[in-house]
């Protein structure tokens, strides 16, 4: 019953990752990311309660604060300051992206049938679900043109990793998790800075222009 609950939360995270693909507005993407992070933190919290592990409480709290509030706030601010156009440009249009996503999902689910995780697993289905989320995040990074959407893709990917780490293995050591959080914050900040500079230097918010620099 508990595993069902965790799986349901995981499924919601996956649905939100897919919703991320369908969005064509930056604000909406960031909101979706915030809600997704909220679900991840719920998932971590409930596993913490289930296994009564203090580490997980902390990481759930950190997830909630950093990913649900701080990062989205920072991103909103970047968008407003940069006056970035709010449409999302993509190499692959949304319907086709969704086709790719369905292939990814089928692939991961088929693949995980052949993986034996071993040890005590809280929820079996979380593994393919979070693997799908990771691939969806990677796909967003590949298929979207603007650095800021690529950043959102990276954050989605990270959420997937967080989910699989906590649900399959009762969480990583706290120190590693805190390290990851700092990585994410630093990454987000760096990305915002770079975005700022790209915007400033080449007057364009499009990572495809980067290929102009090749010899």
């Amino acid at each position: 019953m508990f595993s069902d609950f965790i799986e349901l939360i995981g499924a919601f995270v996956l649905v939100l990752a897919i919703l991320q693909i369908t969005s064509d507005r930056l604000y909406f993407s960031i909101k979706v990311y915030a809600v997704q992070s909220f679900f991840v933190s719920i998932s971590i919290l409930s596993i913490g309660i289930y296994s009564s592990s203090f580490d997980l409480y902390v990481s759930s709290f950190l997830t909630l604060v950093i990913k649900t509030f701080i990062i989205p706030y920072a991103l909103f601010k970047t968008i407003d300051e940069m006056k970035i156009k709010r449409e999302i440009k993509a190499f692959v249009n949304i319907t086709n992206s969704l086709l790719v996503i369905s292939a990814i999902i089928i692939f991961t689910f088929l693949l995980t049938r052949y993986i034996n995780i071993g040890g005590s697993v809280i929820a079996k289905e979380i593994f393919p679900i979070s693997l799908s989320i990771i691939f969806i995040g990677a796909f967003i990074m590949v298929s979207r043109q603007k650095p800021i959407t690529q950043l959102i893709g990276f954050l989605t990917l990270e959420n997937g990793i967080m989910l699989v780490a906590t649900s399959v293995t009762y969480g990583m050591p706290l120190i590693v998790e805190i390290g990851i959080f700092f990585d994410v914050i630093v990454g987000a900040t760096m990305a915002s800075l770079i975005i700022h500079h790209i915007n400033h230097d080449i007057d364009d918010m499009d990572a495809t222009s980067l290929s102009d620099f090749k010899e």
Binding site: A11, L14, V15, I18, L19, T95, L98, S102, I105
Partner: peptide, 10 residues
């Protein structure tokens, strides 16, 4: 509709 389909697929 495609989103609905992916949900059904999952």
């Amino acid at each position: 509709m495609m989103f609905g389909f992916v949900l059904a697929l999952i």
